[in-house]
């Protein structure tokens, strides 16, 4: 299981120093920029016509491979489609896959972890052994196996990446839940005679799930990259659907003729992931105390 973002997220130090001007903002400037970028992406997902009135899929062969200009901000691809327009329409694909896939993985992962923690030693041993086995497979290979069985396409990519990341979340929630179970407030509840199931529902679950949501935010970023990678490899939504990873793999044949086809879609993947990661790390710092 390779997930540098998630591993990194567990041991972070962020700068404590802030200028006077920065302290007046409710959030640090980098976080503010990230939020603005993500809001714009969300707007592009919901209402792409706000940003462009062109079509992302209609070919204009007389406009083939035009360099960036006032008319085509990011240039055009081989089929004369406006790259800016395709990027705007592609936001939906990236955000949808990132959010849905992570959500499914978190729910299943948390379910497995809570079963393991609350189900006694035997359930814990069996479930966690199973999770460890799955952790031996790199995320992208696991997702590729699912794609090999079920075929490509958006839905299958969501499922494939969810399956591939479930073990990471199961491990994370389990360690969090164990921590909560050992905490003083659970001990207090036990001493007060609160029934086991009630402690589980009222205390262990909410206290384990909060931090998980923060980690999941960062996980959305990683999933967006992995989804783009699967599309790049040719297993995403079929042509002519605008998808950032697929745009790069189609553009790869034209790099000698126009650099722009290989630059802008990748830039948007990277900016999206940076924005999600900055936001996630900030949330983590905010909710998990100053010194993690």
């Amino acid at each position: 299981m390779t997930n540098p973002q998630l591993i990194a997220a567990q041991g972070l130090k962020t700068p404590e120093y802030q200028s006077k001007a920065a302290r007046r903002l409710p959030v640090p400037p980098t976080v503010a920029l990230s939020i603005i970028f993500l809001v714009l992406l969300a707007a592009a997902t919901l209402r792409p016509t706000l940003f462009t009135d062109r079509s992302p899929i209609s070919n204009q062969l007389d406009q083939s491979l035009q360099p960036p200009s006032a008319e085509h901000f990011f240039g055009t691809d081989r089929l004369g489609r406006d790259i800016f327009t395709r990027i705007i329409y592609g936001a939906e694909q990236s955000l949808t896959v990132g959010l849905f896939s992570t959500a499914i993985a978190v729910v299943i992962g948390a379910g497995i972890a809570l079963l393991a923690v609350l189900g006694g030693r035997y359930a814990d041993e069996v479930l966690m052994r199973f999770v460890d086995v799955l952790l031996a497979f790199p995320t992208i290979l696991m997702a590729l196996l699912v794609v090999a069985i079920a075929g490509g396409g958006t839905t299958n990519i969501i499922i494939a990446l969810a399956i591939a990341t479930v073990p990471t979340y199961a491990r994370l929630v389990r360690s969090k839940a164990l921590e909560v179970r050992r905490s003083a407030y659970v001990e207090a509840a036990t001493v007060l005679g609160v029934p086991r199931w009630k402690i589980a529902v009222q205390t262990v679950v909410p206290n384990s799930i909060g931090p998980l949501l923060v980690i999941a935010t960062i996980g959305v970023g990683t999933t967006i990259v992995d989804a783009a990678a699967l599309s790049f490899l040719g297993f995403g939504a079929p042509e002519p659907a605008p998808e950032w990873g697929a745009m790069l793999s189609q553009g790869q044949n034209d790099l000698a003729l126009g650099w722009w086809v290989g630059v802008f879609p990748g830039l948007f993947i990277t900016l999206t992931v940076i924005a999600v990661t900055v936001l996630g790390r900030w949330l983590q710092k905010k909710f998990e105390g100053r010194d993690s």
């Binding site: 540098p4 973002q5 990194a8 970023g221 990259v225 783009a228 990678a229 790049f232 990873g245 790069l248 793999s249 553009g251 790869q252 790099l255 650099w259 290989g262 630059v263 879609p265 990748g266 830039l267 993947i269 990277t270 992931v273 940076i274 990661t277 900055v278």
Partner: peptide
Amino acid sequence: TELTAASVPSFWIGILLLI
């Protein structure tokens, strides 16, 4: 450096290097 390296998709790095 760390944030960028962790966020950038490797296929895009490859394409940029090729360009």
